[in-house]
């Protein structure tokens, strides 16, 4: 298993925006909001291929972000719930720099947000420090192998 800390950015995509009108229950909306986009370089470094599932958890706040940090053995930075498992896909067109992953706004991005708004009313939902762990065997979640599921 390989572990690496990333900065997660959640955002709007065309498919996610259309999915709001088409229905949040639709397969297209769920797939769009439950897939983690990873840069080509990071896919190669972690030995990932499109559709493979990873485990994602939020790193507790209070420490300086350190994207790119690879944790080779046992965890030396404890992670907290929520933990989700979801498939990855390579970000198109070199959209993401190494160390940054992206997910469309939705249930998964909200699960990974902390509730602390730092006195602003706004929880940090872009630049969330997360731990991504590769999974040795494909896990079939509640919604099948192409969707996110809680594993924590």
């Amino acid at each position: 298993m390989t572990r690496k800390i990333f900065l997660l950015i959640a955002g709007r995509t065309s498919k996610q925006g259309c999915g709001i009108s088409e229905g949040k229950h639709t397969a297209g909306y769920r797939a769009e909001t439950q897939t983690l986009q990873v840069s080509q370089e990071d896919m190669a470094e972690l030995g990932l291929s499109d559709g493979q599932r990873v485990r994602v958890s939020r790193v507790p706040s209070g420490s300086e972000p350190s994207p790119g940090e690879v944790l080779p053995g046992g965890l030396d930075r404890s992670c907290q719930v929520p933990v989700v498992a979801l498939p990855v896909e390579t970000a198109k067109g070199g959209e993401l720099p190494p160390g940054v992953v992206f997910i469309a706004y939705g249930d998964v991005s909200c699960r990974l947000m902390d509730s602390d708004t730092h006195g602003s009313g706004m929880p940090t939902s872009k630049g969330i420090e997360i731990l991504v762990e590769t999974l040795p065997e494909p896990e079939t979640g509640e919604f099948g192998s192409t969707a996110a599921s809680g594993v924590g």
């Binding site: 509730s115 708004t117 730092h118 006195g119 602003s120 009313g121 706004m122 929880p123």
Partner: peptide, 12 residues
């Protein structure tokens, strides 16, 4: 007062 009377804070 953002952070006090905002929805995320009041609910969380």
């Amino acid at each position: 007062n953002p952070g006090e009377y905002t929805a995320t804070d009041v609910l969380a």
